[in-house]
Design a protein around this nucleic acid. Structure first.
Lengths: 347, 347
DNA sequence: TTGTACGCGTTATCAT
DNA sequence: ATGATAACGCGTACAA
């Protein structure tokens, strides 16, 4: 069934059928009814490919993330997909992995699919060196690009991010000011955002005139799912004589490993060891005790980014950069000094 | 840049360009080089919409799941997307939610997108009553449908699933045979698969001639992310005087709630309370103690299902149903009697 | 080995 | 208000 068949059955031209289909006002009500009746009878829907060819769009948007099974990225993809679909866009998903060449290939494939825009989910699409981002700038020459949790100054590239630097700085300061010493910073990504977090920690140390010890900044390069691996990693550090009374982690999963480490070694939380994670994911409430974590407003970020995307595609002028602040959510793995908010809270 | 431009630049006809593009052997090497040179120079790629129109396919496959941020579904989506993409297919993702009408709408949208096939991820697309599945049978009349973790007999519908009944039955038997009494079955889904699991538990009780008490089968209808809610739910049951020495859960998240419940009430695991989850997800190793769980071979199932999908789309004859067995992975929340495997293990 | 011409199913333009 | 017709860019049968 195509538009010709419908037009014949309805005794009109294909132009009229098209008009009915697309809600043109220039159709006599009786004609519209007649055509609609035939359309409904045959359950006709216009061929999306032909439509795409004519309009040069199929209203689809590419979503690229490293790994959609990652707790955090999965949430982001979910929010973005829902928001875009609600606005009539389809989402083509690609998991690119963390390898640079694969990321580049994934983006190229999206462009060939003729998507209207691409959303890059996660901080790992921006390299610390400028050259590594050439493929992004290049793609931005063809279609608008949207980055979640990444920062880039480039025409036709729009970003929504959490100020990871400040969030981590504030968490570090809160820890320090509550009297905790020897804070181990644990991270597992060298992405731009990863480095920003690390810088936040360093900056806090400097602000409080604490020396930034190299062996208190540890990189864990095991699997992102291997909580026990993190636990073993920390046991190893301990065996090497490293002393720390807090673990500040760039990701909840690392913090969960720290909690296991404490359990295993009979270290009391938070009395002897404080733990702070990042992302405020399900892992924080699954862990026992529940993990204090930084909420980086993922849902809001996703919503703002898709809103920007839809705006751009409708030809509106949109802000190239949206920045939110993270929020420290205290649970059971820390005993921070009461902040101004808590002090004001009479309960 | 279209195929005409390229053909002009290369001094050949569009047919030749097309042949080069599609790797036809009937092109003189020198001509091929000449054409390739022009293609490379302009970075030309054929218009996917025009191609789709002519070939009636854009090699894209729809993936529908209720919620791609769910730990389990996210993994499934990830495996499926990767496998399909490796075989040259694009994936259009839709999260349908759990509402029946929305699921139906999501499938209809996919059909309008003219995808080559649709994969329905998760057991919640099959209703207990036959009528509820009419929309699926209907869609199967247009394109092949693939169900992960669901069972349906219908032409052009292919399934890959874990035998949830048997897996849960075996877990129940293992618990019973290790001497545990008063096993609370905790579940949060009335899907077909959910009921199969429940039946497995019941069946095990009957096999061991244990009465199947109604209040030992509890349905939790809180949020799928609210581990604390599960904890509170169990505390409530306890306060009502319900006695149970094990929690057998249809999902790891429920089991994680049970672990928290035990901690909160000073109940020793596994001495006073055994806990078994389902899916063997990250939550099992994040929990403390780590949760014994049933691994339902998700990766294998996904791989087999996509293999079937690709086969069907290539016109091969494929089995309509693939069934795997679950595997009980014992961790720290149970102390099961040594099975035949453990006994044979000399370590 | 290469080229010509048509079909794919829309939308949009221009008459009427 | 409606109809005829030209794009849109590709693949491919058929001809050469």
């Amino acid at each position: 069934m195509n538009i010709y068949d419908i037009s014949k059955q309805a005794g009109v031209s294909i132009a009229t059928v098209s008009r009915v289909l697309n809600g043109s006002p220039n159709v006599k009500p009786s004609t519209r009814r007649k055509v609609m009746e035939v359309i409904d009878r045959y359950g006709y829907t216009p061929n999306a490919f032909a439509r795409g060819l004519g309009l040069d769009t199929m209203n689809s948007i590419g979503i690229i993330c490293a790994d959609s099974s990652d707790l955090y990225l999965a949430k982001a993809v979910y929010y973005i997909e829902g928001s875009l679909r609600k606005n009539g866009y389809n989402c083509i998903l690609t998991c690119s992995g963390y390898d640079h060449g694969d990321k580049e290939a994934a983006l190229a494939l999206m462009l060939n699919q003729r998507v209207d825009a691409v959303i890059l989910v996660g901080s790992n699409y921006i390299e610390a060196d400028r050259e590594g981002n050439g493929y992004i700038m290049n793609a931005a020459g063809r279609i608008p690009l949207f980055l979640l949790n990444a920062d880039m100054d480039c025409p036709n590239v729009f970003c929504a991010m959490c100020d990871d630097f400040k969030a981590m700085q504030e968490a570090s300061l809160a820890l320090i000011d509550s009297g905790v010493t020897d804070i181990l910073y644990l991270y597992n990504s060298h992405s731009y955002s990863g480095l920003r977090k690390l810088d936040g920690y360093r900056s806090a140390c400097r602000m409080r005139e604490i020396p930034v010890a190299d062996d208190l900044m540890q990189f864990y390069d095991g699997s992102r799912e291997d909580i026990d691996g993190v636990c073993r990693f920390l046991c190893g550090l301990r065996k090497q004589g490293l002393v720390f009374h807090a673990v500040l982690a760039s990701e909840d999963m690392l913090a969960a490993g720290a909690v296991k480490y404490a359990k295993l070694n009979g270290i009391a939380i938070p009395e002897e060891l404080s733990v702070i994670g990042y992302n405020n994911s399900l892992l924080t409430t699954c862990s026992n005790p529940e993990i204090t974590s930084i909420d980086n407003q993922l849902e809001t970020l996703c919503y703002q980014l898709t809103k920007t995307c839809i705006g751009v595609l409708s030809g509106e002028k949109m802000p190239p950069k949206i920045i939110y602040s993270g929020e420290l959510v205290e649970k059971e793995t820390t005993r921070l000094s009461p902040g101004p908010l808590d002090a004001a809270d009479g309960r």
